[in-house]
């Protein structure tokens, strides 16, 4: 058993518990984006930052990947943490401003504007879908490809993967909805959710502007999530 202090409260947890789990156990909220119960921690979004240690040695770490240690002193909402978190949110907003999940997180944490160039990416590379596909669906149909600026998520050679069972799990967990409806390109489809519903949105010219977080979908009136 390990005893650590979070925001002055003592918590005793099992070995191997992460700081995030310990904090949640105490009921202390830490925002997360790329963390999901049942999937291995990945530490991609840095939204779950907390401050550990004292004085000049204090540092910022991602709580979802940091293992609890005996005597660890954690602060989950010090001024430094709040500043770091807001910065992360600003950056996320800059890269993917159309994501409802990110918008909600930003507004909840009082981020009203962001100072960076707007990118309108459709993926923030949080890796949720990749882990979902591999760890829960045991398919490994999608994965990371390339690196650096050209890193992306998708199937090998961008063709429909034989390992994919069209379960739609990747779309379900995606905070940015990149892998939303691919009905218009059946070769690349990773989901077949609506294939036999003949959703009207396919005929609408502004298909590309529609996001699947519109739940229920304004066009085809099927719940997206």
């Amino acid at each position: 058993m390990i005893t650590l202090t979070i925001n002055g409260l003592e918590a005793t947890v099992d070995e191997g518990t992460t700081v995030l789990e310990a904090a949640r156990f105490l009921g202390l909220p830490i925002p997360t984006l790329c963390h999901m119960e049942g999937l291995s921690p990945y530490g991609a979004c840095r939204l779950c930052v907390v401050e550990i240690g004292e004085g000049p040695k204090a540092k910022i770490v991602s709580s979802c990947t940091y293992p609890a240690q005996d005597g660890l002193r954690v602060r989950t909402s010090s001024a430094r943490v709040v500043r770091a978190r807001k910065m992360v949110l600003e950056l996320l907003l800059a890269s993917c401003p159309q994501s409802k999940t990110i918008q909600d997180l930003a507004s909840f944490h009082n981020v009203r504007q962001q100072r960076f160039r707007q990118e309108h990416d459709d993926c923030i590379l949080c890796g949720l879908c990749v882990r979902m596909c591999e760890e829960q669906m045991m398919a490994k149909a999608i994965g990371f490809r390339g690196r650096g600026q050209t890193r992306s998520i998708g199937t090998p050679f961008d063709v429909r993967s034989e390992a994919c069972r069209l379960c739609g799990g990747c779309m379900y967990v995606c905070p940015a909805c990149q892998l939303r409806c691919t009905y218009t390109e059946p070769d690349k489809a990773v989901c077949g959710g609506c294939a036999n519903l003949s959703p009207p949105c396919v005929d609408i010219e502004s298909f590309d502007d529609m996001m699947c977080y519109m739940s229920p979908c304004v066009a085809c009136e099927t719940a997206a999530h």
């Binding site: 490994k140 149909a141 999608i142 994965g143 990371f144 490809r145 390339g146 690196r147 199937t155 090998p156 050679f157 993967s161 390992a163």
Partner: peptide, 12 residues
Amino acid sequence: RSLTDIYGVATF
């Protein structure tokens, strides 16, 4: 091996 992993390494 999964083709996804191989492709990931090959493009990395």
